[in-house]
Amino acid sequence: MTSTIRILIADDQHLVRGALAALLSLEPDLEVVAQAGRGDEVAPLVAEHDVDVAMLDIEMPGMNGIDVAAALKDAGARSRVLIVTTFGRPGYLRRAMAAGAAGFVVKDTPAPELAEAVRRVARGERVIDPELALETLDFGESPLTEREAEVLLAAEDGRSVREIAQRLFLSTGTVRNHLSSVIGKTGAANRAEAVHIARDRGWLLE
């Protein structure tokens, strides 16, 4: 690695990308060499610009940041991933780490701390927001099965059981059973509350 750390910033909000790039470019040892507004733009840019650290948002069009991290890992990319997101949710942290991310911080991290997080990740260290790490330990892994999460996502927009069943090619009885299980596991009063709880804890991600 050269003395200057080469950074890619991927975020679907142009103003956020620009602000992060401006802040990091003030550091003499950091250089933003590429920016992306979609997750599926990241891998080609990482290869083209010989990126040391890819700073990824989670919720982006094309491909979410967690899937991008996994794709870079599977491709054997040298670049290390630092998730920088508004959505500091325990489930997201756990999934990001499993996908190969080296760091996870939230966007309101002060600029000097963010710059240091980039340096530490580039050195091969892991950097995790301490409050979020504790919260993740409290909540543990998602109790939802993959199918339950899929049904709950389909229910998020207020679809009827019949509509969910048709969308997922399931019987209405199966959908009801899954929704009942989800409500029980989340401790919610209804499916709308179950969606809110699962979202807040990072157990749902398209």
Rank of each mutant, 00 (worst) to 15 (best):
Arg6Pro: 00
Ala192Asn: 12
Ile183Tyr: 04
Leu114Pro: 02
Ser181Ala: 15
Ala111Val: 14
His178Tyr: 11
Glu131His: 14
Asp57Thr: 08
Arg201Cys: 01
Arg119Ala: 14
His14Phe: 12
Val121Thr: 04
Gln35Arg: 12
Leu114Gly: 11
Met97Pro: 00
Thr85Asp: 02
Pro110Trp: 00
Ile66Phe: 03
Arg94Phe: 00
Ala154Asp: 03
Leu30Glu: 02
Ile66Trp: 02
Ala115Pro: 03
Ser171Arg: 04
Gly100Glu: 10
Val46Asp: 02
Gly62Gln: 07
Ala10Asp: 07
His196Ile: 08
Pro28Leu: 06
Leu93Arg: 01
Thr86Trp: 07
Arg167Lys: 13
Ala149Arg: 15
Arg167Phe: 02
Ala102Leu: 13
Ala154His: 04
Leu114Ser: 11
Leu114Phe: 12
Val121Leu: 08
Val81Trp: 01
Arg94Ser: 12
His49Asp: 08
Arg162His: 10
Glu41Tyr: 03
Ala98Val: 10
Leu82Arg: 05
Ile164Thr: 11
Ile164Phe: 07
Leu20His: 12
Asp12Ala: 02
Gln166Met: 09
Ser171Lys: 02
Leu56Ala: 05
Ser171His: 08
Val105Phe: 07
Val42Cys: 13
Arg89Ala: 14
Ala99Tyr: 01
Glu141Pro: 13
Leu30Asp: 03
Ala155Asn: 04
His178Pro: 00
Ser171Gln: 08
Phe169Cys: 11
Val182Ile: 14
Gly65Phe: 03
Glu131Met: 14
Asp74Glu: 15
Leu137Pro: 00
Arg199Pro: 00
Asp108Leu: 08
Glu116Cys: 03
Leu204Glu: 04
Ser142Asn: 08
Ile83Val: 15
Arg38Lys: 13
Arg167Asp: 12
Arg199Gln: 14
Ile9Asp: 04
Gly202Gln: 05
Asp11Pro: 08
His14Trp: 10
Lys107Met: 06
Ala194Trp: 05
Pro44Lys: 10
Leu132Glu: 02
Val161Glu: 11
Arg80His: 02
Gly18Met: 14
Arg167Asn: 09
Val105Met: 14
Trp203Lys: 11
